[in-house]
């Protein structure tokens, strides 16, 4: 039977309450869905960032499962060592349990500083899932731009000013790059659809080899949105086709959700403080170009899914 919320809610908590993430933060949901998606034991790693600093303040921890944090850029490499240890000890008969492995990182720790470590781990074929919680900037250090930051976004290193219009570049399409690694499973998910996220995590854990999930996880502070709007904003990102939900299984692309009524990027962006400056007179061209790019990417995705 496919996973549903009732089943997910009945499983033991693997990430406890009492962590210190902001009210309305998206990533505790990501952790709960990913860790709850399977019943087998899981060992988790995490890059330095909000997730790690709010959940493991010594002598406390929110992790009810074995957890390791090493540094910022090496969540994937660290987990590849843990997984290698497991393979070795299992081969020697020193471990007989079926253990699964997941490495988490934010977009800074995944798209940017941890990109090489991630690429290496995926190419080597470790039996692990990598989950990027993408909130579109370096939120832990106070909202600096990353290569996941969307064009036009105000961040503290691409501030909207008298001349500056926010980030000048479009975001990097990381899921496409990971699919190009030829690994068995790549998917894009969102905290806007928790069941879809949990089902993808379950699939990711059950493939033979590496899997990558990119999960849109809005940051209420960095995006400048109300604390109770994070899931709605994430859902609308998908309805705007800015963040399509798709999966790539053994090279076969599938779009999981096609919005019946596509939301205009203007309608999505205007709810977020980070795009406020784009609605000042004179910035219409930037908003038009952003819409055109989102449309182009969506068409390219549909084409990939049809061609497969």
């Amino acid at each position: 039977m496919a996973l549903n919320l009732k089943e997910l809610a009945s499983r033991p908590e693997r990430f406890s309450a009492g962590h210190r993430a902001c009210a309305g933060c998206g990533f505790p949901l990501v952790i709960k869905m990913v860790l709850g998606s399977i019943k087998e034991p899981i060992v988790a790693a995490c890059a330095t960032g909000c997730m790690e600093v709010t959940s493991t303040i010594f002598p406390y921890t929110a992790w009810e499962i074995p957890f390791i944090h090493n540094a910022f850029e090496n969540s994937a490499a660290t987990m590849s060592g843990v997984e290698a240890a497991y393979q070795s000890l299992k081969r020697q008969g020193k471990i007989d349990k079926d253990i699964r492995f997941v490495a988490f990182g934010g977009d800074g720790g995944t798209y940017d500083i941890g990109f090489q470590s991630l690429s290496g781990a995926m190419e080597r074929g470790h039996n692990m899932v990598y989950v990027c919680y993408d909130n579109g900037a370096y939120m832990n250090t106070g909202v600096q731009r990353s290569s996941a930051t969307p064009r036009g976004s105000h961040t503290t290193t691409t501030p909207a000013g008298k001349v500056g219009k926010g980030k000048q570049q479009y975001r990097k399409d990381l899921a496409l790059i990971m699919a190009a690694h030829g690994i068995p499973y790549v998917a894009q998910a969102s905290v806007g659809d928790l069941v879809d996220l949990a089902r993808k995590a379950e699939k990711a854990f059950n493939v033979d080899g590496p899997a990558f999930l990119n999960v849109l996880t809005p940051c209420r502070l960095g995006w400048n949105v109300p604390a109770d709007s994070v899931r709605d904003i994430a859902k609308e990102a998908t309805d705007a086709c800015f963040w399509p939900l798709f999966e790539v299984e053994n090279g076969k692309w599938k779009v999981n959700y096609k919005p019946k009524n596509k939301i205009a990027m203007d309608d999505w962006m205007k709810q977020q403080g980070r795009f406020k400056h784009l609605f000042a007179p004179g910035n219409e061209d930037i908003r038009r170009e952003i819409q055109e790019e989102v449309d182009r990417q969506w068409e390219a995705l549909l084409k990939r899914a049809e061609e497969a």
Partner: peptide, 20 residues
């Protein structure tokens, strides 16, 4: 584990040693 850099070599070694 034929890693892609020495940074990952030490990172993976830390992971493996911690794993047991």
């Amino acid at each position: 584990v034929p890693v892609e850099s020495e940074h990952s070599a030490m990172s993976a070694t830390v992971g493996a040693a911690a794993a047991g």
